[in-house]
């Protein structure tokens, strides 16, 4: 993974977090990755307003926003009938104690849920994964988002996760974060999609 190169110049990002300092921390990280100044907003309402009038290529949001839970905002984005808005990659930053939000964010259509504290390594790897993996989008009557039948495998180019993330949700592998547990179990036993 150390040889992986990402050219993030020109990528338009939106960071949604109620806390000014946390927004600045994430913004500094992604500037370090080579993205130009991200747009920073502090609420779901402000995010909606921005997305109505501007295009973004990546959205990073806190799990719990002051005026809504992240699943509400994610569902709103995914149900917008105007590509590419409905397909934008969404990374949710879950607080250390907000694990109960993980399933809800996944079911609303998040690409990744990352447990805080997020490190530059962890965030870069998730962005790299989103940018390099061809993950189809699924639309059903009740779900619109990345295919949740997501194998318990390493990211492209064998990028490793932080070990602390592995137990972030269910005590299972990070891939299980976005996969139905039964399916992961079946696959581990030799099944296939």
């Amino acid at each position: 993974m150390t040889h992986v190169r990402l050219n993030l110049r020109g990528v338009r990002s939106l960071i949604v977090d109620r806390d000014h300092f946390t927004r600045s921390l994430v913004a500094q990280m992604i500037r370090g990755f080579g993205m130009e100044g991200p747009t920073l907003v502090d609420s779901a309402a402000a995010a909606r307003e921005h997305l109505r009038h501007s295009c973004v290529d990546l959205c990073i949001m806190e799990a719990v926003l002051p005026d809504a839970a992240s699943p509400e905002l994610i569902s709103w984005i995914r149900r917008q009938n105007k590509p590419p808005l409905c397909f934008i990659p969404i990374i949710v930053l879950s607080g250390y104690t907000q694990l109960r939000m993980v399933n809800a964010a996944r079911d609303a259509g998040a690409n990744f849920v990352v447990r805080k504290p997020v490190s530059p390594q962890g965030l870069f790897d998730r962005i790299a994964w989103v940018a390099r993996a061809d993950r189809p989008f699924i639309e059903t009557g009740t779900y619109m988002g990345p295919d949740r039948r997501f194998l318990s495998i390493d990211p492209p180019d064998n990028a490793r996760k932080r070990s602390g993330d592995d137990c972030a949700c269910t005590g299972d592998h990070d891939g299980a974060l976005l996969a139905p547990n039964g399916l992961v179990s079946a696959l581990k036993k030799g099944g296939s999609l």
Partner: peptide, 29 residues
């Protein structure tokens, strides 16, 4: 059930020539 294979601008931009290695990006961050 509809399946889409969206063309992500993020993917297109990230795959361009140049850019930063993971190690450099993390160091810069």
């Amino acid at each position: 059930v509809k399946t889409y294979f969206p063309h992500l601008r993020l993917a297109a931009l990230a795959g361009r020539a140049g850019g930063t290695t993971r190690a450099s990006a993390i160091e810069n961050a």
